[in-house]
Amino acid sequence: MMSPDPNTDTMHPQLMLLMELQDLRSQHRELEKDDGSAPVEREHFHIDPAEARAQLAEKISELEERLDPQVRARYERIRPQRERVVVPVINGVCYGCFVSIATATVGDQEVHQELQSCENCGSFIYVVS
C-alpha cells in the first residue's frame, strides 16, 4: 500500500523535538504516579514500570541534548512551572492559558518557520490546522 511518511518538512525541527520530549515526559509521569499506568502496563503488557521509566528518562536526556542552547534555556525555565512546555493552539486559542493569540503570531507557521511561543503564558506553541 501507499504509506507516505507523514510530512514534517515544514515543521521547525526544534518544535518537533519539543513535542517529542513533551510526549515522552507524559509517558514517564504516567508511569510514576501512584494511580498511573504502571498497574495496567504490568498486568496487560508485561512491562516493568521501573525499567520503562529508566529507558524513557534516558531518551528524554538524549533529546534534551539536541535542543539549541536558547531553546533549552527557555525549556528549563518553563518546565518547573507548567506540566506542558508545548501547547496546541486551536482556533487561535492557546491551550496553555486559554487566551486568544493574535493572528499575526499564529499566522502561518509554515511560512516563517520560527519557533513560536504564547505571549501570554510563554509556552511554546504548536498550531493545529
Binding site: 511518511d5 507523514p6 510530512n7 514534517t8 515544514t10 515543521m11 518537533m16 513535542m19 517529542e20 510526549d23 515522552l24 509517558q27 512491562i47 525499567e51 520503562a52 529507558q55 524513557l56 531518551k59 504548536y126 493545529v128
Partner: peptide, 16 residues
C-alpha cells in the same frame, strides 16, 4: 505533523 509526532511516540512505547 500530528501524525508524525504520534507515530514517534507510539514507536517509543513499542520500544519499551
Amino acid at each position: 505533523k500530528s501524525e508524525a509526532i504520534l507515530f514517534k511516540t507510539l514507536k517509543r512505547r513499542e520500544n519499551l
